[in-house]
Amino acid sequence: MALPLLSPLCLLACRPRGIPGLALLPLVVLPLWAGARCPCQDPALCQPIRHHPDFEVFVFDVGYRTWKFYDWSQITTVVIFGKYDPELMCYAHSHGARVVLKGDIPLKDIIDPTFRASWIAQKVKLAKAQYMDGMNIDIEQEANCFSPEYYALTALVKEATDSFHREIKGSQVTFDVTWSPKCKDRCYNYTGIADACDFLFVMSYDEQSPALSECIAAANAPYKETLTGYDDYIKIGINPEKLVMGIPWYGYDYTCLKLLEDRVCTIPKVPSWRASCGIASGQQVPYKIIMKHVNSSISGSHWDKNQQASYYNYKDSSGHLHQVWYDNPQSISLKAAYIQKHGLRGIGMWHANCLDYSGDAVPKQQTKEMWKVLNPKLR
C-alpha cells in the first residue's frame, strides 16, 4: 500500500548577498516519504523506464484517480498535471510507461542563466525523489522573435534535457508547442527546441480558423488547419519523428446570438489574448458531458464536411440557443491517418480525464472507442 502524499510546502529563499538582482526561487520541501524508500510493493518499479517505444501514446492526467481505468496497453508516457500520486507512478511503471513532471515558469525569469540552472536542478531533484522519468515543459506565453526570451527558452530546453539525461538514465524531456509554428503571438525557436529535447507535443486544438475570425462557432481542431500545422512544422526543418500529434478530448459550447438555418451560430466578440472572438466566446466541455447531452439536444449530432467535425444545437433552461463542437472517433481517425502517412512519432490527448470511466454500458463503449482510435493498428 502506498504511503500518503503530503502537500509540498514552499519556502522563499533569501537573496544571496553581493549578487544584486538575482531572481528568487522557492525551495521545495519534499513529502516526507520522497526519496526515503520506494513506495511500490516491488522496489524494481522505482527504477526509471529506459525503453523507448516505436510509437508514442502521450497522456495528460489532471487527477481524480480515473487513471486506473485508462488503456494501459497503449500508454507510453503520463504527464502529471494534477497532484502527484505515487500509486500512479508504480502502476505506470508496471506497464512500462513513463511518468513525468510538468514544467512551467515565467519566460522573463529564465533570461537569468543562474535562475535557469537552479530551476532545472530543483526539477531534477523532485523527479528523482518521486521516482519519475523526466519532464514535460508546458510554457504557453507570448514571446517576440529574437528577443531575450526567445533565446533563453531554447537554452532552457537544452539545459533541462541535458541535465535530466545525465542525472536520470532513460529520462525524457518534451515540450508542448502550439498547433502551428505560424502563430503570431508565440514566436519560439521551434527548430532549436525540437533539436534540444526528445520530442514536441503539438497542441492541435484551440485553433483559430477563418470561421472563428468571422465570429461564428466552429470546430476546436478543423481538419485542414490541423494538418497544415504539421506540414508547416515539417517545412521549417523539424523531423516528423520529433512530432507527437495532440488531439482534444473536449469540445466547446457556444451561446448563439443567432442560429441561422440550424447550422450557423453567430457568437459575440470577446477581447482575448488570441482573437476578438472564437474560443474565448465558448466554454470547454469534456467529451463525457457532450455524450450525455447530444441525444437529448434539439438537433442531434451533425457532421460538418468542411471542418470534418461534429456539432449539435440545444436550448438551455433560459431559452438561449447553444451550439457545441467536438471531436469524436470519426474526426480523430481522419486526422490520425496523417501520423502513419508522414511518420510522426505518435499521438496524445488533452486530457485523459475527459472520458466517462463509470463503467455503465453506453459510456464504457464510448470511452473504449476513444482509446481505440489512438492505436494505428485498430483504426
Rank of each mutant, 00 (worst) to 15 (best):
Leu3Gly: 07
Leu6His: 07
Ser7Gln: 14
Cys14Leu: 11
Arg17Gly: 08
Ile19Leu: 15
Leu22Arg: 15
Ala23Lys: 15
Pro26Asn: 13
Val28Met: 10
Val28Asn: 05
Val29Thr: 11
Leu32Pro: 05
Ala34Leu: 05
Ala36Pro: 00
Gln41Cys: 07
Gln41Met: 07
Ala44Glu: 14
Arg50Ser: 05
Glu56Leu: 02
Val59Gly: 03
Val59Asp: 02
Tyr64Asn: 13
Trp67Leu: 08
Phe69Arg: 15
Tyr70Met: 08
Trp72Asp: 10
Trp72Phe: 03
Val79Phe: 00
Gly82Arg: 01
Gly82Asp: 00
Tyr84Phe: 15
Met89Arg: 15
Met89Tyr: 07
Cys90Ser: 10
Cys90Thr: 03
Tyr91Lys: 02
Gly96Ala: 03
Leu101Asn: 12
Leu101Ser: 02
Gly103Gln: 01
Asp104Ser: 14
Ile105Asp: 04
Asp109Ala: 12
Pro113Met: 11
Ser118Cys: 07
Ala121Asn: 14
Ala121Thr: 09
Gln122Arg: 13
Lys125Ala: 14
Lys128Ile: 04
Gln130Leu: 15
Gly134Phe: 01
Asp138Gly: 03
Asp138Lys: 08
Ile139Lys: 02
Cys145Lys: 14
Pro148His: 04
Glu149Ser: 07
Ala155His: 05
Leu156Glu: 01
Leu156Gln: 05
Val157Ile: 14
Phe164Leu: 06
Arg166Thr: 13
Glu167Tyr: 02
Glu167Gln: 13
Ile168His: 09
Ile168Tyr: 05
Gly170Val: 00
Val173Trp: 04
Thr178Met: 01
Ser180Asp: 11
Pro181Asp: 08
Asp185Ser: 11
Arg186Tyr: 13
Tyr190His: 11
Ile193Cys: 02
Ala194Lys: 09
Leu200Asp: 00
Leu200His: 04
Phe201Gln: 00
Val202Asn: 00
Ile236Asn: 08
Gly237His: 10
Gly237Lys: 08
Leu243His: 07
Val244Arg: 01
Gly246Cys: 07
Pro248Trp: 06
Trp249Leu: 13
Leu257His: 00
Lys258Cys: 00
Leu260Lys: 09
Asp262Ile: 07
Cys265Val: 09
Pro268Cys: 02
Lys269Ile: 01
Ser272Asn: 04
Trp273Arg: 10
Ala280Cys: 05
Gln284Ile: 12
Lys288Arg: 15
Lys292Trp: 06
Val294Leu: 09
Ser296Met: 04
His302Lys: 15
Lys305Thr: 13
Gln307Trp: 13
Tyr312Pro: 14
Tyr312Val: 13
Asn313Arg: 01
Ser317Thr: 12
His320Glu: 10
Gln323Asp: 12
Tyr326Ala: 01
Ile332Lys: 06
Ser333Met: 09
Ala337Gly: 01
Tyr338His: 03
Gln340His: 09
Arg345Cys: 06
Met349Pro: 04
Ser358Phe: 10
Ala361Asp: 05
Glu369Asp: 13
Met370Leu: 12
Val373Pro: 03
Leu378Arg: 14
